[in-house]
Design a protein around this nucleic acid. Structure first.
Lengths: 213, 213
DNA sequence: ATTTTTTTGTTGCCACGGCAACAAAGGAGG
DNA sequence: CCTCCTTTGTTGCCGTGGCAACAAAAAAAT
């Protein structure tokens, strides 16, 4: 078990290798491997485990009646998944699928909540924080989605990025993905970006942006 | 302290009065009162407490530069607030304000995560579930907001309501609020609802709806 | 280097829906 | 009952932005 990797995850942040090892034993953690495309679990199942990606990629996907698949989230090395599903204690609204061959560490939620000692307490704080951060990330997105115009959505999003990362900054999306994220059409997005650049409100090439002020 | 009320809250659900009392003492809970309009805490503050509304109403409000206030959430008797703020451990993106004179029970988060015993474990499960449910509620809303047309947003939202509550069902919004929730214009919403009713896709009066099939 | 595929930019068309202004209906209070 | 105020429905106008189709650029594959 690669404790150094775990130490860098949000879930085990601030914990000593000894504490991590202790928590793993105490909680009944286990490691599993999945091939490309394999389901860790399916939409509608009740799950009481959460996972950490040790290697590979895990996607959260929502399958609509009609077969359409909607990408909901993606986790790579060190990422935590299944926390929100297990925490809600309801049938999962998404399937979890290995986008690439993946090795994951699985932790039973209930053991984490009941376990005692300072290491467990720290872990729980981390878990709760992880979940809350996912909430606020989503909250931020709804702020973009409820802006009335494409221009305002872009200004708000890019302004947030500049504030967070400084100038220049690189966004984690290509045009199509950004359009999806902001809930707009890709060509309309390109058009508006062009306009903003001509007006000197922003400069960019590909996913690298620079904003004045 | 009204233990019967607490027993009916999501945070203390499934716990005996004795357990609740024990948790309150063990964690250092305290009761506070706030007059109408008083701030429980302000945007930007770091908070490590969460609260339960014993009486009155507490609003989460986001103040934008420019003075514009955006209503983010509201909790009434039995409702839990501040959980997501405290859990994230970051400066609060919202202010909490007593919309009506309010009595609240405040619980230090850290004590809840570190406390031992089955009652504490249950409480933590409940807390985590509360947070996760707020996430999925928001997730559902983004599903509406990313639908491309007003019609599709309505169909999706009303379809969800019918599935959840059965026919007929009453939505918790008036027209203006529903428009805001779905991120559309109120008159356009009324227009579309009218069209759908003429096509037999829905029947309604005010906030009471009925959908075929 | 050449070909193929992916990503991004551009443009014309036109419909959806925002906006404003008003009418009608419903509720509350006298 | 009548008045006042809030909520909901209706309609015309017109701009934003969805959509499709193509061009250009970049990246990947051969």
């Amino acid at each position: 078990m690669d404790l150094a990797l775990l130490q860098r995850t949000s879930l085990f942040a601030g914990m000593e290798p000894g504490e991590i090892r202790q928590v793993l034993e105490q909680s009944g953690a286990l490691v599993r491997q999945y091939g490309r495309g394999a389901f860790l679990w399916q939409q509608g199942e009740s799950v009481q485990r959460l996972g950490i990606v040790l290697s590979g990629t895990v996607d959260a996907v929502r399958y609509h009646r009609g077969g359409r698949a909607e990408a909901v989230g993606r986790q790579q090395q060190g990422g935590v998944f299944g926390d929100l599903v297990a925490a809600a204690g309801a049938p999962s609204p998404v399937s979890l699928q290995a986008a690439e061959p993946a090795t994951v560490l699985l932790l039973p939620l209930e053991a984490l909540m009941a376990g005692e000692g300072p290491a467990m307490a720290r872990l729980r704080q981390n878990l709760l924080r992880e979940v809350a951060e996912k909430f606020w990330l989503l909250r931020r997105r709804t702020a973009y989605l409820t802006e009335p115009s494409l221009r305002r959505r872009l200004e708000l999003y890019l302004g947030d990025c500049r504030q967070r990362w400084g100038n220049p900054f690189t966004i984690p999306y290509n045009r199509q993905e950004l359009a999806d994220f902001l809930g707009v059409n890709r060509s309309a997005l390109s058009r508006e970006l062009g306009r903003m650049q001509r007006q000197g409100l922003v400069r960019f090439q590909r996913s690298r942006f620079w904003m004045p002020e």
